[in-house]
Structure formats: C-alpha cells, structure tokens
Design a protein around this nucleic acid. Structure first.
Length: 507
RNA sequence: GGGCCUCUAGCUCAAUCGGCAGAGCAGCGGACUUUUAAUCCGCGGGUUCGGGGUUCGAUCCCCCGGGGGCCCA
C-alpha cells in the first residue's frame, strides 16, 4: 500500500462517518487516532508464542496467586474487559473457543501503555499481550502483561453475550454467531468430523472419490426443478445439477467399480426447516452390489459418523433427547406399511380410482398426471411417514416413480429401491440400479409424457446417458444421502443450523 | 399459495385505552491494583422495517409492500 492510500484510509475510516451509530463512530475515531499517533491498527503480524489452549494445558494447575516464571506472548479477541483503575482485566478468546485472561497494570506496562490499553481497546478487538503466566489472587490463569499491542480493531460492537441472538441474526451474520456462541462453532467441527468419517468409511471399502459436473446441459438423476444458467461462450443454456447420479453411473460403465462423490446439489424449490436450495449430498455406486449391500453400506456410514461425533451410536439431540442409531434397522415394504396404515390391501396392482378415493378420504392432493404409483407414494408419505421415528428402510417402490431403478426380482410392478427414514424425515435412498438400456429408454419416455402433462419435476431424456448404458453396465447398487440431513440426524439441529452460511433473502 | 404471529437503541426486549419512546447489557465521562455478566457516581444513544391513510396527536388503528418465524396446502 502506498503512503497516500494509508493516509487516505486514516482520514476516512469508514464511509458515511456522519451517519454511523454512536459505537461505530467512536471505534472509527479511535482507529484514526491510533493511526495518527503512529501505531498500527491492523499490523501484519503480532507477537504470539502460544495458543490460549496451550497456556491452559501447560499451566492449568498453577496455584492461586502463583507465578510460573514462563514468559509468553498470546493473542486473541477481547471478549470481556474490566477496568479497575491502575489494573485492567481482559479475557481473550481463540478460534477454538478457549479463553484466557490477561492483566495489564501500571507496574507491568507503565502508565502510558496502560492508559492506551484503556482508551484504545474495545470488546471485539484482537490484541497481543506479552508477559508472565501467572494465577491471579482469585485463581484465574492469566498473562501479566509487560507489553501489549493492538492486533486488529473491531469497528462494530459485539452483541450482548448473555442472550442468544435472534435466529435470523444468527443466520444472517454467522460470523458473529460463531464469535459469541460456542455451539455454533461446534456444529462446524461436527460437520467436518462427519465428512471425514464418511470418507474414511468409503476408503476402507476401497471406494474412489470423484467429482462430476455441476454445470450440466441436461439435469437428471432426481425429480426436482433445476436452477438454470447460461454459458456465454457457447451461448448455451445450462442447469445446475440436481444430482450427480447419471455421471457417476457413466463412471461405473467405464470401470470405476466403486465410486462416490460428496458435493453440492441445487434444487429450485422452497426453503424450510428440512430443505435448502443448495445442499450437500453423498452418492455412491458399487458394481456387483444391489440395494441390500447399499443398505448395509449406508448403515455403516451413518453409524460410523455417529461414533465419530458422539462416541456412540446413541446420539444426544439438540432438544436433549437420546436417539438410537445402533444395531440393525427395521425394514418394511412401502406397499405393506401403506396397507397396514390404510386398513386395506394396497399393491402395485391397485387401481388408480381406488387410490384417488383413498386420497380424497385423507385430504391428499391429487394432480392429474399422478399415476397409481405416484398416488400410492403420496398416500404413504401422508399415512406412514409421520410414524417412522426409529431408523427404517422402506423398500420396494413403484416403477412409475423410480425412473432409474431395476425392476424387483420377484415382486411385479415395484423396483428394488429403499428410502431410509430417521425421525420421520428421509435421510437417504438406495437402489439396485436399472442397467437395461431398453427399459431405461422406456422409463425416460414415460417421464417425458409426465412432463408434457404438467409435471415439471419429471426427468428429461438423456441420450448420452443411454449411449453409455448401451455399452453395457454391470449389475450395480447405488445409494444417496443428504449430508445436511445426516448432520440433522446425529445432532437434531434444523438444516439451517447445519449449513454454515445458508441462503437468506437479502435484507 | 393460504392462515396466524413478529419487526422498536449496537444486542435482547418493554411501552397500559391512541397522549413526552424505556430497561438490561453494550457505549461515553469519572473513581477503583484482583475482576469473573465486577461495583459506585454521572451522561448520551431512536428513520419504532418502508410507503400511504385515519386522527389535534400513531410504536399502537387501517391499507399496500418487504424481512423473519410457526402452522396448513
């Protein structure tokens, strides 16, 4: 930076200085005053020999009032500040949430540096303190300063630490949430531990991680409305992917027999406590696997993740209740559970008219393009899902709604597909993949007809995907699981709490 | 998409029937060499989400719009 720029910044600390709230104006004025006094406000580097946690680990047992004899430099964000005359206390915080008190006294740093500490430092600032590790008269582990320096000034005040910010403020300004709320930092670490656990489980089973296109000329692999975008160079309409499935299957055709991807999908739908327009998903495919082997893999992924974050397959949810993800999970069939809930036999052969009548009875909305399979699934979601609290694999879904799934080997009209439900939300899905290119083409054609009838979630015919499959695809099992929902499953949090920076409407 | 609730100081929230817009924390000035949400004295701080209407007078009532939450579809 040139001197000219530096002086310009000193003169105009922030735009619209006149209109600033009082506390920002005062902090900006301090910034300018410190700079004009020749001291840096944002030095490139400050003294720091130890993290706060390291000091605590090394000297946590120091007796009340004792001195350690060790001279250190620590730095951190000022979370509390108390001025007791010729002595100041400040509590510094590190990124991992650990805190340590520093004491600045007239004897230790001199009257001038003490006065500067009082006048220059605000809550939220970063400071560096050099001095001896001691224990205060009240037994608080501290660094007794012999010098100090400002490490970075905060121009905005911290929110009050003793009350939670509103949910909206927490989501809109996650950086502030992270500063003041340890639980917010914990979620970030928990999510990282889950992702790491997933990769370890996959690697232990010799799955290869790949990245497939997010910008696609044709969206597919799921039933959802896509985001559209445009590529200038090719003057081409592109879609943000709604699922990686069709590319991962191309990889299996090519001989990547065990393959997985953990990455983002985009669905142009609403946002609520269980849906985010962009969400992270795990998908995996295994040649010579099937929906049973994928169920076993999925259970292992979830249980290993629970062990990684909770140390147990029984996790404690945000509301304090325990939830058991351990052991084998129950398995039911979709038509069987629906029949039981409806009090009458319903199969893939049940006539549409009968299902329409049942839908009317239970206030389930019926769109004209719904066939009997889609209707049965809608009824299932209304009548059965709310009661699926314990982890449950629901098996054998109608062909009509399972465009990419192999026909069941013994039950007519259904496919080898399961959905995994946890606490009544859908956590994942698994298939014996459809690998017959002729049937796949027929299913795509049926989807095209549904699209023509008004179903804007219907899949489009993907000719290149069919071409790949026509080269021969081995019998394959596949699974998919929402990463954000897996976090929800092991923590009990809402989806917007599991995503670090969820989309919010502009203010 | 529909219904209900909500938006006030930096943050979290009050404000009676429509009658001078308040508190706690935070901030500013002062005191204090051992504080732990320190204490004591003093003092500031507001586009009450935006626009319009009713009224002598609107945070409050009405209309339109926006953000957020919950429930329903």
């Amino acid at each position: 930076m040139t001197e000219q720029q530096a002086s310009h910044q000193a003169e105009a600390p922030v735009p619209n200085g006149e209109d600033l709230p009082e506390q920002m104006r005062i902090r900006s004025e301090k910034r300018a005053r410190i700079l004009s006094g020749g001291k840096p406000v944002y030095p490139v580097q400050v003294e720091r020999t130890h993290s706060l946690a390291e000091i605590r680990a090394a000297h946590g047992e120091l007796e009340t009032g004792a001195s350690s004899g060790e001279i250190v430099s620590v730095a951190g964000r000022v979370m509390r500040f108390r001025d007791a005359g010729k002595l100041c206390f400040a509590v510094l915080q590190d990124g991992d949430g650990s805190q340590l008190q520093v004491m600045v006294t007239a004897n230790g740093v001199g009257a001038e540096a003490l006065a500067a500490f009082k006048s220059d430092v605000d809550l939220g600032d970063f400071v560096s303190v050099h001095g001896e590790v001691i224990s205060s008269k009240r037994g608080e582990l501290s660094v007794m300063a012999d010098r100090w320096a400002l490490a970075a000034k905060a121009l905005r005040p911290l929110p009050v630490l003793h009350k939670e910010m509103s949910e909206e403020a927490r989501v809109r300004q996650r950086y502030v949430d992270l500063i003041v709320r340890p639980a917010a930092r914990d979620v970030v670490r928990t999510r990282a531990a889950v992702v790491r656990s997933l990769r370890e489980t996959f690697h232990a089973r010799e799955f290869i991680e790949v990245e497939t296109p997010m910008l696609q000329t044709l969206h597919g692999g799921a039933a959802a409305r896509p985001f559209r975008t445009h590529m200038n160079a090719f003057d081409l309409e592109l879609f943000l992917r709604i699922a990686p499935e069709l590319f991962l299957k191309r990889a299996v055709v090519g001989g990547i027999d065990r393959v997985f991807e953990i990455n983002r999908n985009f669905r142009n739908e609403g946002a609520d406590s269980t849906h985010s327009p962009e969400f992270a998903m795990i998908e995996a495919y295994e040649a010579y696997g099937n929906y049973d082997t994928m169920a076993e893999l999925t259970r292992s992924l979830v249980q290993s993740a629970a062990l990684a974050v909770a140390g147990s397959t029984t996790v404690t949810l945000a509301d304090g209740t325990d939830y058991d993800l351990g052991g084998d999970w129950q398995q039911v069939t979709m038509y069987g559970s629906l029949s039981q809930a409806a009090g009458r036999e319903i199969t893939a052969a049940t006539e549409r008219a009968e299902l329409v009548e049942l839908a009317a009875k239970h206030d389930v909305k019926v769109e004209p393009w719904y066939g009997p399979g889609k209707l049965a699934e809608e009824l299932f979601e209304e009548l059965v899902v709310p009661d699926l609290y314990a982890p449950t694999f629901v098996r054998d879904y109608p062909e009509e709604t399972s465009t990419l799934v192999a026909p069941h080997r013994s039950t007519p009209g259904v496919t080898e597909k399961w959905d995994l439900y946890v606490r009544s939300f859908e956590l994942g899905t698994g298939y014996s993949e459809l690998v017959d290119p002729v049937i796949q083409r027929e299913r795509f054609v049926a989807q095209a007809q549904a699209a023509a009838a008004g179903d804007d979630e219907a899949m489009r015919l993907d000719e290149d995907f069919l071409r790949a499959m026509e080269h021969g695809m081995p019998p394959t099992g596949g699974m998919g699981m929402g990463l954000d929902r897996l976090l929800m499953a092991v923590t009990g949090l809402g989806i917007r709490e599991t995503i670090l920076f969820p989309l919010v409407k502009p203010e």
